[in-house]
Protein backbone atom coordinates (compact mmCIF):
# COMPACT_ATOMS: atom_id res chain seq x y z
CA UNK A 1 0.00 0.00 0.00
CA UNK A 2 2.77 2.35 1.01
CA UNK A 3 4.60 1.32 -2.10
CA UNK A 4 1.57 2.06 -4.25
CA UNK A 5 1.18 5.49 -2.64
CA UNK A 6 4.84 6.13 -3.23
CA UNK A 7 4.61 5.25 -6.90
CA UNK A 8 1.55 7.46 -7.30
CA UNK A 9 3.20 10.33 -5.47
CA UNK A 10 6.39 10.15 -7.52
CA UNK A 11 4.31 9.83 -10.65
CA UNK A 12 2.39 12.98 -9.77
CA UNK A 13 5.59 14.89 -9.04
CA UNK A 14 6.97 13.97 -12.44
CA UNK A 15 3.74 14.99 -14.10
CA UNK A 16 3.72 18.52 -12.70
CA UNK A 17 5.96 20.08 -15.41
CA UNK A 18 3.80 18.69 -18.22
CA UNK A 19 0.69 19.89 -16.36
CA UNK A 20 2.08 23.40 -16.08
CA UNK A 21 3.07 23.49 -19.76
CA UNK A 22 -0.37 22.22 -20.74
CA UNK A 23 -2.05 24.79 -18.45
CA UNK A 24 -0.03 27.73 -19.77
CA UNK A 25 -0.73 26.92 -23.43
CA UNK A 26 -4.47 26.39 -22.89
CA UNK A 27 -4.42 29.41 -20.55
CA UNK A 28 -3.96 31.69 -23.56
CA UNK A 29 -7.18 30.25 -24.96
CA UNK A 30 -8.79 30.91 -21.58
CA UNK A 31 -7.71 34.56 -21.85
CA UNK A 32 -9.43 34.73 -25.22
CA UNK A 33 -12.58 33.19 -23.76
CA UNK A 34 -12.31 35.64 -20.83
CA UNK A 35 -12.44 38.58 -23.27
CA UNK A 36 -15.57 37.32 -25.02
CA UNK A 37 -17.46 35.91 -22.03
CA UNK A 38 -16.43 38.28 -19.25
CA UNK A 39 -15.25 41.58 -20.78
CA UNK A 40 -17.54 41.66 -23.79
CA UNK A 41 -20.33 39.56 -22.24
CA UNK A 42 -20.87 37.67 -25.51
CA UNK A 43 -21.17 33.87 -25.37
CA UNK A 44 -18.89 33.10 -28.31
CA UNK A 45 -18.37 29.48 -29.29
CA UNK A 46 -16.17 30.17 -32.33
CA UNK A 47 -13.03 29.39 -30.32
CA UNK A 48 -13.65 25.66 -30.85
CA UNK A 49 -12.97 26.38 -34.51
CA UNK A 50 -10.43 29.18 -34.29
CA UNK A 51 -8.14 27.28 -31.93
CA UNK A 52 -7.90 24.47 -34.47
CA UNK A 53 -7.56 27.08 -37.23
CA UNK A 54 -4.51 28.54 -35.50
CA UNK A 55 -2.95 25.10 -35.07
CA UNK A 56 -3.69 24.04 -38.62
CA UNK A 57 -2.40 27.25 -40.22
CA UNK A 58 0.83 27.08 -38.21
CA UNK A 59 1.34 23.39 -38.98
CA UNK A 60 0.75 23.75 -42.71
CA UNK A 61 2.96 26.83 -42.99
CA UNK A 62 5.84 25.42 -40.92
CA UNK A 63 5.68 22.06 -42.65
CA UNK A 64 5.99 23.92 -45.97
CA UNK A 65 9.04 25.85 -44.85
CA UNK A 66 7.63 29.18 -43.64
CA UNK A 67 9.44 30.83 -40.75
CA UNK A 68 7.72 29.81 -37.55
CA UNK A 69 7.38 33.36 -36.17
CA UNK A 70 5.69 34.47 -39.36
CA UNK A 71 3.50 31.35 -39.21
CA UNK A 72 2.37 32.19 -35.67
CA UNK A 73 1.59 35.75 -36.77
CA UNK A 74 -0.47 34.59 -39.75
CA UNK A 75 -2.32 32.13 -37.48
CA UNK A 76 -3.27 34.91 -35.07
CA UNK A 77 -4.48 37.10 -37.94
CA UNK A 78 -6.54 34.27 -39.44
CA UNK A 79 -8.14 33.64 -36.05
CA UNK A 80 -8.89 37.34 -35.66
CA UNK A 81 -10.50 37.50 -39.11
CA UNK A 82 -12.71 34.51 -38.26
CA UNK A 83 -13.65 36.18 -34.97
CA UNK A 84 -14.50 39.40 -36.77
CA UNK A 85 -16.77 37.48 -39.13
CA UNK A 86 -18.57 35.94 -36.13
CA UNK A 87 -18.94 39.51 -34.82
CA UNK A 88 -20.37 40.67 -38.15
CA UNK A 89 -22.88 37.82 -38.16
CA UNK A 90 -23.93 38.71 -34.63
CA UNK A 91 -24.10 42.51 -34.92
CA UNK A 92 -25.00 43.20 -38.55
CA UNK A 93 -27.04 40.10 -39.41
CA UNK A 94 -28.59 39.96 -35.90
CA UNK A 95 -27.88 36.25 -35.52
CA UNK A 96 -27.80 35.36 -31.78
CA UNK A 97 -24.23 35.27 -30.45
CA UNK A 98 -24.24 31.58 -29.51
CA UNK A 99 -25.53 30.60 -32.94
CA UNK A 100 -23.05 32.87 -34.76
CA UNK A 101 -20.23 31.19 -32.87
CA UNK A 102 -21.50 27.69 -33.49
CA UNK A 103 -21.95 28.45 -37.20
CA UNK A 104 -18.40 29.78 -37.40
CA UNK A 105 -17.10 26.70 -35.59
CA UNK A 106 -19.01 24.52 -38.08
CA UNK A 107 -17.72 26.39 -41.09
CA UNK A 108 -14.14 26.37 -39.84
CA UNK A 109 -14.21 22.57 -39.64
CA UNK A 110 -14.41 22.41 -43.43
CA UNK A 111 -12.05 25.33 -43.86
CA UNK A 112 -9.43 23.64 -41.67
CA UNK A 113 -9.56 20.46 -43.72
CA UNK A 114 -9.22 22.55 -46.87
CA UNK A 115 -6.14 24.28 -45.45
CA UNK A 116 -4.61 20.84 -44.83
CA UNK A 117 -5.43 19.97 -48.49
CA UNK A 118 -8.06 17.41 -47.59
CA UNK A 119 -6.22 15.70 -44.76
CA UNK A 120 -7.42 15.70 -41.18
CA UNK A 121 -3.99 16.16 -39.60
CA UNK A 122 -0.54 17.61 -40.27
CA UNK A 123 2.44 16.35 -38.30
CA UNK A 124 5.09 18.73 -36.97
CA UNK A 125 7.46 16.04 -35.68
CA UNK A 126 11.07 17.17 -36.20
CA UNK A 127 9.87 20.31 -37.99
CA UNK A 128 11.46 23.66 -37.11
CA UNK A 129 8.79 24.79 -34.65
CA UNK A 130 9.62 27.51 -32.16
CA UNK A 131 9.88 24.90 -29.40
CA UNK A 132 12.11 22.52 -31.37
CA UNK A 133 14.37 25.36 -32.55
CA UNK A 134 14.84 26.76 -29.05
CA UNK A 135 15.29 23.32 -27.55
CA UNK A 136 18.04 22.51 -30.09
CA UNK A 137 19.69 25.90 -29.78
CA UNK A 138 19.74 26.13 -25.97
CA UNK A 139 20.20 22.39 -25.44
CA UNK A 140 17.34 22.36 -22.94
CA UNK A 141 14.76 19.62 -22.57
CA UNK A 142 11.49 20.15 -24.50
CA UNK A 143 9.26 20.02 -21.39
CA UNK A 144 11.26 22.88 -19.83
CA UNK A 145 11.29 24.89 -23.06
CA UNK A 146 7.51 24.45 -23.27
CA UNK A 147 7.05 26.06 -19.86
CA UNK A 148 9.48 28.94 -20.55
CA UNK A 149 8.03 29.78 -23.97
CA UNK A 150 4.39 29.46 -22.93
CA UNK A 151 4.99 31.51 -19.76
CA UNK A 152 6.62 34.26 -21.86
CA UNK A 153 3.73 34.23 -24.31
CA UNK A 154 1.21 34.33 -21.46
CA UNK A 155 3.00 37.28 -19.83
CA UNK A 156 3.20 39.10 -23.16
CA UNK A 157 -0.50 38.52 -23.86
CA UNK A 158 -1.51 39.69 -20.38
CA UNK A 159 0.60 42.85 -20.75
CA UNK A 160 -0.85 43.54 -24.20
CA UNK A 161 -4.46 43.02 -23.08
CA UNK A 162 -3.89 45.14 -19.97
CA UNK A 163 -2.44 47.97 -22.06
CA UNK A 164 -5.07 47.71 -24.79
CA UNK A 165 -8.08 47.81 -22.49
CA UNK A 166 -6.66 50.97 -20.93
CA UNK A 167 -6.71 52.82 -24.26
CA UNK A 168 -9.71 54.78 -25.49
CA UNK A 169 -10.78 51.99 -27.84
CA UNK A 170 -10.27 49.34 -25.15
CA UNK A 171 -12.32 51.31 -22.65
CA UNK A 172 -15.11 51.64 -25.21
CA UNK A 173 -15.08 47.83 -25.66
CA UNK A 174 -15.27 47.36 -21.90
CA UNK A 175 -18.14 49.83 -21.68
CA UNK A 176 -19.94 47.93 -24.45
CA UNK A 177 -19.57 44.71 -22.49
CA UNK A 178 -20.67 46.34 -19.23
CA UNK A 179 -23.86 47.94 -20.48
CA UNK A 180 -24.64 47.94 -24.16
CA UNK A 181 -27.52 50.43 -23.98
CA UNK A 182 -25.61 52.86 -21.79
CA UNK A 183 -22.54 52.62 -24.02
CA UNK A 184 -24.69 53.35 -27.05
CA UNK A 185 -26.27 56.29 -25.24
CA UNK A 186 -22.76 57.64 -24.68
CA UNK A 187 -22.27 57.68 -28.43
CA UNK A 188 -20.14 54.52 -28.69
CA UNK A 189 -20.53 52.51 -31.91
CA UNK A 190 -21.14 49.24 -30.04
CA UNK A 191 -21.30 47.02 -33.14
CA UNK A 192 -17.72 47.75 -34.15
CA UNK A 193 -16.60 47.25 -30.52
CA UNK A 194 -18.18 43.79 -30.38
CA UNK A 195 -16.51 42.90 -33.69
CA UNK A 196 -13.09 44.10 -32.51
CA UNK A 197 -13.51 42.32 -29.17
CA UNK A 198 -14.37 39.02 -30.85
CA UNK A 199 -11.44 39.45 -33.26
CA UNK A 200 -9.07 39.80 -30.31
CA UNK A 201 -10.65 36.90 -28.46
CA UNK A 202 -10.38 34.56 -31.44
CA UNK A 203 -6.94 35.82 -32.36
CA UNK A 204 -5.85 34.65 -28.90
CA UNK A 205 -7.59 31.30 -29.39
CA UNK A 206 -5.67 30.89 -32.65
CA UNK A 207 -2.42 31.79 -30.88
CA UNK A 208 -3.19 29.13 -28.28
CA UNK A 209 -3.92 26.65 -31.09
CA UNK A 210 -0.63 27.51 -32.77
CA UNK A 211 1.31 26.91 -29.55
CA UNK A 212 -0.61 23.72 -28.72
CA UNK A 213 0.06 22.33 -32.19
CA UNK A 214 3.75 23.01 -31.70
CA UNK A 215 3.69 21.44 -28.24
CA UNK A 216 1.93 18.33 -29.56
CA UNK A 217 3.94 18.32 -32.81
CA UNK A 218 0.63 17.82 -34.54
CA UNK A 219 -2.40 19.73 -35.72
CA UNK A 220 -5.67 17.88 -36.21
CA UNK A 221 -9.11 19.03 -37.23
CA UNK A 222 -10.50 17.86 -33.88
CA UNK A 223 -7.72 19.22 -31.64
CA UNK A 224 -10.02 21.86 -30.17
CA UNK A 225 -12.99 19.67 -29.28
CA UNK A 226 -14.39 21.02 -26.02
CA UNK A 227 -12.09 24.05 -25.98
CA UNK A 228 -14.85 26.34 -24.79
CA UNK A 229 -15.46 24.23 -21.67
CA UNK A 230 -11.73 24.07 -20.94
CA UNK A 231 -11.53 27.87 -21.23
CA UNK A 232 -14.56 28.42 -18.99
CA UNK A 233 -13.29 25.95 -16.39
CA UNK A 234 -10.00 27.86 -16.19
CA UNK A 235 -11.79 31.19 -15.79
CA UNK A 236 -14.11 29.93 -13.07
CA UNK A 237 -11.31 28.26 -11.10
CA UNK A 238 -9.20 31.40 -11.45
CA UNK A 239 -12.02 33.59 -10.18
CA UNK A 240 -12.54 31.26 -7.25
CA UNK A 241 -8.96 31.63 -6.11
CA UNK A 242 -8.42 35.30 -6.96
CA UNK A 243 -10.75 37.69 -5.15
CA UNK A 244 -13.16 39.83 -7.16
CA UNK A 245 -11.86 43.30 -6.30
CA UNK A 246 -8.40 42.81 -7.77
CA UNK A 247 -6.88 44.99 -10.51
CA UNK A 248 -7.54 43.93 -14.11
CA UNK A 249 -4.05 42.54 -14.75
CA UNK A 250 -4.31 40.32 -11.67
CA UNK A 251 -7.64 38.96 -12.92
CA UNK A 252 -5.97 38.10 -16.23
CA UNK A 253 -3.12 36.37 -14.39
CA UNK A 254 -5.79 34.57 -12.38
CA UNK A 255 -7.15 33.06 -15.61
CA UNK A 256 -3.73 31.59 -16.42
CA UNK A 257 -3.31 30.31 -12.86
CA UNK A 258 -6.82 28.84 -13.08
CA UNK A 259 -5.87 27.04 -16.28
CA UNK A 260 -2.75 25.54 -14.68
CA UNK A 261 -4.70 24.46 -11.58
CA UNK A 262 -7.39 22.92 -13.80
CA UNK A 263 -4.74 20.80 -15.54
CA UNK A 264 -3.12 19.78 -12.27
CA UNK A 265 -6.47 18.76 -10.76
CA UNK A 266 -7.28 16.65 -13.81
CA UNK A 267 -3.82 15.13 -13.70
CA UNK A 268 -4.19 14.33 -10.02
CA UNK A 269 -7.62 12.83 -10.58
CA UNK A 270 -6.30 10.66 -13.43
CA UNK A 271 -3.59 9.26 -11.17
CA UNK A 272 -6.19 8.01 -8.70
CA UNK A 273 -6.60 4.25 -8.98
CA UNK A 274 -10.40 4.50 -9.31
CA UNK A 275 -10.40 7.01 -12.19
CA UNK A 276 -10.20 5.94 -15.82
CA UNK A 277 -8.86 8.23 -18.52
CA UNK A 278 -12.29 8.43 -20.15
CA UNK A 279 -13.57 10.08 -16.96
CA UNK A 280 -11.82 13.31 -17.94
CA UNK A 281 -15.02 14.95 -19.20
CA UNK A 282 -16.99 13.91 -16.12
CA UNK A 283 -14.26 15.24 -13.83
CA UNK A 284 -14.23 18.54 -15.74
CA UNK A 285 -18.00 18.88 -15.50
CA UNK A 286 -18.04 18.15 -11.75
CA UNK A 287 -15.16 20.56 -11.25
CA UNK A 288 -17.01 23.33 -13.09
CA UNK A 289 -20.23 22.77 -11.16
CA UNK A 290 -18.33 22.77 -7.86
CA UNK A 291 -16.33 25.88 -8.69
CA UNK A 292 -19.39 27.76 -9.87
CA UNK A 293 -21.61 26.73 -6.97
CA UNK A 294 -19.03 27.79 -4.38
CA UNK A 295 -19.59 31.42 -5.37
CA UNK A 296 -23.36 31.03 -5.01
CA UNK A 297 -23.06 29.30 -1.66
CA UNK A 298 -20.66 31.97 -0.43
CA UNK A 299 -23.09 34.70 -1.48
CA UNK A 300 -25.99 33.05 0.38
CA UNK A 301 -23.81 32.67 3.42
CA UNK A 302 -22.97 36.39 3.28
CA UNK A 303 -26.62 37.34 2.99
CA UNK A 304 -27.49 35.24 6.04
CA UNK A 305 -24.67 36.86 7.99
CA UNK A 306 -25.87 40.27 6.92
CA UNK A 307 -29.40 39.45 8.13
CA UNK A 308 -28.10 38.32 11.50
CA UNK A 309 -26.02 41.45 11.95
Amino acid sequence: MLNLLNVTFMGILRLIPSGIGEGLAWGILALGVYISFRVLDVADMSVDGTLALGGVVTAVLVANGTNVVLAILISVISGAVAGAITGLMHTKLKIPAILSGILMMFALYSVNIHIMSGKSNVSLLKQPTLLNLLSDWLQIDRSVINIIVFALFAALVIAAIYWFFGTKLGSAIRATGCNLQMARAQGIDTDSKVIIGLAISNGLAALAGSLIAQKDSNATVDMASGAIVIGLASIVIGELIFKKNLPFWAKLAGVIVGSIIYRLIIMLALQMPFAETYDMKLITAILLVLAMSVTVIKKRHHKKEAKHA
Partner: peptide
Protein backbone atom coordinates in the same frame (compact mmCIF):
# COMPACT_ATOMS: atom_id res chain seq x y z
CA UNK B 1 -6.36 0.88 -20.37
CA UNK B 2 -5.81 4.49 -21.32
CA UNK B 3 -8.99 5.30 -23.19
CA UNK B 4 -9.40 8.72 -24.76
CA UNK B 5 -12.73 10.30 -25.66
CA UNK B 6 -11.61 13.34 -27.66
CA UNK B 7 -8.47 14.45 -29.46
CA UNK B 8 -7.86 17.40 -27.14
CA UNK B 9 -7.31 14.96 -24.25
CA UNK B 10 -4.60 12.88 -25.88
CA UNK B 11 -1.54 14.88 -24.80
CA UNK B 12 -2.53 14.78 -21.17
CA UNK B 13 -3.54 11.13 -21.16
CA UNK B 14 -0.21 10.12 -22.73
CA UNK B 15 1.67 12.24 -20.19
CA UNK B 16 -0.11 10.34 -17.44
Amino acid sequence: DFAVSSASEIAQVVAS
